[in-house]
Design a protein around this nucleic acid. Structure first.
Lengths: 219, 219
DNA sequence: TAGATTGTTAATCGATTAACAATC
DNA sequence: TAGATTGTTAATCGATTAACAATC
């Protein structure tokens, strides 16, 4: 009975949410799909289709109520679930996430970090305690946790992913630049690959520069 | 005459490249589209279609030569262009990129970083000199640069993007978590949004947990 | 009520998959 | 040559866009 919602739709929702937050913060309460489409560079049809995959959040003749719609999308994205997370590997990227990224703004509670380095263990990073990696199984047994933020060196990625599966973690947010293949069909994995992103940019840049050169030569 | 290649295809290429590098490093030189599909969790049809958008890199009855194919994809992605980059904003995420990310592995040369903080200016971060942000226009005038890696605070994102446009930068790799709208149609922008990634994961996790609960209740 | 805009169905478009002739 | 596997065309599938009746 539940028709699964396509990946493309899901990937657009966080951006909708960001824009709705901006609109709400600037005091706008009413929004039509047409206006929203213009802001997003999308089409009103697509926006209505996307939203109606989850339910009718608008009102005919009026449009959408910005705060309500924002709340609905936040709920759809699971922001009200109180997802618990731990961070594994307090290196540069781990530290950057601890210091700069707001897990709370995504409705995720980061409860602890883990590393092997003696000088880090026992310290407190932006209110998040750092434990020895050896204490991880015990910690997870005591604090049921949904998400592991994986920031370990490449070589540790897969072994750690398997350990996390055994410990009952449901999702891995993977920053290791190794594809973590789902260690179990139960495990959700989101790979963040900086190099993939830069290489795409590099492609479009190269195309663009070729185009520029072609136009120049013609003149 | 040149049919534009779809975005989906481009976004798959970096992953193909990564896997081909792994295969090449483990000494494998020959690969059929069917074998490659199995490794990637894709289909042989899709791989052949993707590659043939750029040319026939294989050989009937044999398959693909791994080192050759890797080199072709690297070229397609512009890795041999010698793209020059600067990094703007040496905060946490900027430092993480300087210390952990290999621009060179993407064929990009990171020549300098810029910040406002006095204690950083004049220092050297992993072989990359840090200059005052005030010196940026002069630097870019002397060193033609293609890509700006944008790691400044949110409030600085758009003004900086506009400054960079004026200075002739072609592409922005944006880590500011603000959507940088193309300041000019000439400018390529690649937005990296950690929160979008985490929220997608949060959605799939919530779905997955609901499903688990449903199965449990049924028993 | 009249005007506006949604929710939803139908039409179009593009991307993926299947099939097969070409050829190494 | 026979077997294998590509390059490429055709068929299918899914996603986006257009249209319009429902309704606030």
């Amino acid at each position: 009975m539940k028709k699964p919602v396509s990946n493309n739709v899901i990937r657009r929702l966080p951006r909708y949410l960001r824009k709705l937050e901006e609109l709400e913060n600037s005091g706008i309460t009413r929004l039509s799909s047409g206006e929203f489409a213009k802001i997003l560079g999308s089409t009103s049809s697509q926006i209505r289709q996307d939203l109606n995959a989850f339910g009718g959040f608008g009102q005919q003749g009026y449009g959408y109520h910005v705060p309500d719609l924002r709340a609905e999308i936040a709920r759809i994205l699971g922001m009200d679930r109180g997802h618990q997370a731990v961070l594994i590997g307090v290196g540069n990227i781990g530290k950057a996430l601890l210091e700069k990224f707001s897990f709370n703004d995504c409705g995720v509670q980061l409860t602890a970090a883990f590393d092997v380095k003696q000088e880090l263990i026992g310290t407190d990073q932006q209110g998040v305690p750092v434990w020895s990696i050896d204490a991880l199984p015990e910690y997870l047994a005591l604090h049921p946790t949904d998400i592991a933020v994986l920031c370990v060196p490449k070589s540790q990625a897969m072994p750690m992913a398997e350990l996390l599966t055994e410990q009952g973690i449901d999702a891995i947010w993977n920053f290791t630049n190794v594809d973590v293949v789902k260690p179990s069909s139960q495990m959700m994995v989101e790979n963040v690959h900086f190099s993939d992103s830069l290489l795409s940019l590099s492609y479009f840049l190269a195309e663009h520069q070729d185009e520029k050169r072609r136009l120049k030569n013609r003149s």
